[in-house]
Structure formats: C-alpha cells, structure tokens
C-alpha cells in the first residue's frame, strides 16, 4: 500500500502540468490551443456520452476506435506469428540464416511508409491494405529478435535434452522457446508501438474510418478540440498497450527474472 502511495506521489507533476496548461491556454486564448478542460469535455461528448446499454460508449467509438484497434491487433498477432515461426526456424539453422540475412536486413531498412502507395494500389482503400502495411512494417523486430533468441540457446541445455532423449517438439517447447522468450518479447513490444504509428499513417492516407481518418477529418474541419482529443487518445492507447504488454511479460517471464536475480 505504502509503495503504491509513493508511486502515486511521484506523479505530482502531472496535475501541476495540467493546471499550468489550463492557465496558460486560458490567458493566451490562442485558437489552436484549447484549454485541457475544453478537450476533456470534447473527449466526453465524442466517446463517452452514449447510451448506458452500451457502457456509455458512442457511435464514434464503434465506428472509428474499434475498427482501428481491431486492425492493429490483427496485424500485430499475424506479424508476431510470422516473425516467431520464421525467426526460430532461422535462428536454429545457422546455414539458413546466412542465406537470408541480407534479405532480412534490407527488408528491415526499407522505411515502411514508402510502400504505402504499393499496398494502396494492390489492395485499394480498406482494412486489407492497412493490415498489409502494418505487418510489413512491424514483422522485422520480431523476426530479428526471434532469430537472435533462438540462436544463442545454451548449448549445455540442448545437450542435456539430447541425453534425456527429448523429442524435437519437446526440445522446442521446453528449451528453445523459453530461452528465446525474453528477446521475443522485446521484439513484440517494439512492434506494438510501431504498429500504432503505422496504423495512424495508413488510416490518414487511405481509409474511410479509424482514428487516423478522424484526425484528418478534424484537421479539414478545423475542429481543434476534436483534433486534440484524438491525439491524446493515441497517446493513451500507446501507454495502455505498452502497460498491458509489460504486465504480460512480467507474468510470463517471472521465472526468467527470478533466475537472473538469483545468479
């Protein structure tokens, strides 16, 4: 309890900053900087003023937020699966890894937004194009980290597995994957924050719904509080997604952290 309290106390700067922001924006009266209270009111009417039967969520949430999040998560899961499966296979075979290394390094170096026009032409406007863009952009960190994680599995552990006659599947599930897990998680976390960025850019350029689209719409109509509300929502989403992943990582990798503390 006391630790939680101390942790909260460390956040004192946030209310101070918000109050200062409120005071400055009210004094300056600049058209582009609405006070945070106005933004908060806008956030409420935009997202939380719906009927009680739907947990007060508005149509805007179901039309723009859920589709965005759905595409983001679908692309992340698909990229994660591709990255881990290919990465572990490549990491276990040094020879195979040598053959594809330049291709992987080059694929990672291509700035993903440059391929947006390509995916737009191939899939036309819609979710498929956005998912393709996100997957292409975020698969690399998972792939590279999985390769590295699977490559440096402790040789002693693998030899022990041979002595105990573990099957290939058991060896993969009990030794290789757990030992590669910390690296894989680091890759997954990086891809999740990349996915958020690519979701926004793909929706800004080629979409008829979603958070990025709403943001562009707010710009066109010069709805400043609405624009700020969407920007803040993206920040909050980034924080929440990262926090969920860190929580999951702590839980799943608890044994790993214990082991590291013990040695």
């Amino acid at each position: 309890m006391r630790r939680a309290g101390a942790r909260l106390a460390r956040l004192w700067i946030i209310p101070v900053a918000v109050l200062l922001w409120e005071a400055v924006t009210r004094l300056a009266q600049g058209a582009y900087f609405p006070p945070p209270s106005a933004i908060a009111a806008e956030m409420y009417t935009l997202w939380l003023s719906g009927p009680a039967s739907r947990l007060f969520l508005t149509d805007t949430v179901s039309e723009h937020v859920w589709p965005s999040l759905g595409r983001l998560l679908r692309a992340w899961v698909e990229a994660g699966l591709i990255g881990v499966v290919l990465g572990v296979a490549l990491g276990r075979s040094a020879r195979l890894a040598d053959y594809v290394d330049p291709l992987v390094q080059f694929g990672r170096a291509i700035p993903p937004p440059t391929l947006l026009p390509l995916f737009l032409a191939l899939f036309s406007i819609g979710p498929e194009m956005q998912i393709a863009t996100i997957i292409f952009g975020i698969v690399w960190p998972v792939l590279l980290n999985s390769i590295e994680g699977a490559r440096y599995v402790d040789r002693l552990h693998l030899e022990t597995a041979t002595v105990f006659r573990l099957s290939r599947a058991q060896r993969l599930l009990r030794i290789i994957l757990p030992e590669a897990a910390p690296k894989i998680f680091a890759g997954l976390r990086l891809s999740l924050s990349l996915a958020l960025i690519l979701m926004v850019i793909s929706e800004m350029v080629g979409s008829t719904d979603g958070i990025g689209y709403s943001l562009v719409l707010a710009l066109r109509e010069s709805e400043l509080p609405t624009m700020w509300a969407w920007i803040l929502m993206l920040g909050i989403l980034g924080l929440i997604l990262n926090a969920i992943l860190i929580g999951a990582e702590r839980r799943i990798l608890a044994w790993h952290h214990r082991e590291r503390q013990a040695t």
Partner: peptide
Amino acid sequence: ERALRPLIELFRPIPSIALIPLAILL
C-alpha cells in the same frame, strides 16, 4: 529527472505522425 519522468512517459507514446495535422495548422 524524477520529477519530469511521468511527463516524458506521457509524451513518448504519442505517435509523431498524429501531430502532423496540429503542426500544419500551427
């Protein structure tokens, strides 16, 4: 650093791309 830390953690996850519309207006 301890005082500013929460602010940094708050700003960091905002994708820079999302700030383009605001930057265009400003």
